[in-house]
Design a protein around this nucleic acid. Sequence first.
DNA 1: TTTTTCAATTGATAAATGTCAAAAAAATTA
DNA 2: TAATTTTTTTGACATTTATCAATTGAAAAA
Lengths: 223, 223
Amino acid sequence: MSCFIENDTNIFKSLSHKELHFLIDKKQQIRYNVRETIIKQNTSSTFVICMRDGLAKVYIEGEKGKNLIVKIIGRGDFISGGGLFNGNVQHFTISAITPVTCCLIDAGKLSSLFSENNQFAVELLRNHTKQNNYLLSKMVSLTQKYMPGRVAETLLYLKNDIYKNSKFTLDLSRQELAEMSNMTKESLVRILQQFKESNIIKTHGSGIEILDENTLINISKNG
Amino acid sequence: MSCFIENDTNIFKSLSHKELHFLIDKKQQIRYNVRETIIKQNTSSTFVICMRDGLAKVYIEGEKGKNLIVKIIGRGDFISGGGLFNGNVQHFTISAITPVTCCLIDAGKLSSLFSENNQFAVELLRNHTKQNNYLLSKMVSLTQKYMPGRVAETLLYLKNDIYKNSKFTLDLSRQELAEMSNMTKESLVRILQQFKESNIIKTHGSGIEILDENTLINISKNG
DNA sequence: TTTTTCAATTGATAAATGTCAAAAAAATTA
DNA sequence: TAATTTTTTTGACATTTATCAATTGAAAAA
């Protein structure tokens, strides 16, 4: 089934084929181009998203046009826009940073499945608990670390969670990296420069290569 | 039933008396004194908390002994320590700021109820979604507002959500107010001083009175 | 009450980070 | 290709916020 990725974190793993079919009945797969908005903050919608392919950024549009990128989602990730069972208003914007294919699942169908399969409710709750814990630790990083620590963390996040390679071609601009790390683009550039001068990273065009991961880990911990 | 508070946000509202009894069978009400720890970050436990009386602070213990108070919980609030269906490890510490009475509910019992009453799963999910949205907006405030804005927000939060009165006696120290607002205690004191000088608030002992709420709202929005 | 301890306040200074403007580089369009 | 626009980078400077030390005030213990 389209959105069913075989791994431990997939919330659909407890569903039967029949149940999966019910959830995603009409092969409702949508394609988005780069920069297209998938979910728009403050609008109302009743679907949740399951990413099939590509990468998207999840961000909050703050006051004064200042964005905060909360996370990047990719293949197999499931995300509800903050309105799930709670008024349907989306609390963040999601937009494609590479071409995206995803399934839109009607939120109402989720709860209909609970009576048939209550393990599924547990999976959904686990998903939310994890998201919660992630937000808590992100909040601490953003508030208690100096800029180098935050940039180091962003780079490690991209390596470990998104590109899964210490050498990757970035789908994000410097501005967006800054929005992930809670600083201005100028500050971000300066810190990347420092990392380059210390031979911690290397850049080539829009690519970044992490040369000294241990140092980066140290900076992210103590920064 | 002890923890059942009649209001819209209570997650137990969909449960029958029998179901509630199952959840909280042995009148497992615990009392905590001021400063006592109810849940300790990084320890393992399988219960969730329902507050019956008193106030507690929910906070993350960051590196270098720097705390971030995420929120204050009181009567009727339900909270899981971040380990719910997810390894049981607590991701934050909860400790009493006034004498607290609360129920400890075994997390395993929650999922057993899902098959009987799947509306309950929806309520739990709604609770998590709300918590999520709260964390997102808190994250934006902490990162995108200047100190006066963050202090104003903290004061309004205490007025509206905790004490429900524009005049209240504080159960929190300046240090703790600072930990809610992500700044040092010295900075917090200076800003309170400014607010006093501008006749926005008045303090008497450990009490605070909000004199000019509109200005405070403006500061919290634009600060 | 006096002493002791801890929290709150104030001031001087340093460090972190942002702002603004300009230059350089890269990407798009004509 | 050349021209244009956008993004990235750099520098000088301003602002915000933290740190450190000293002082005051208030609560708890003797």
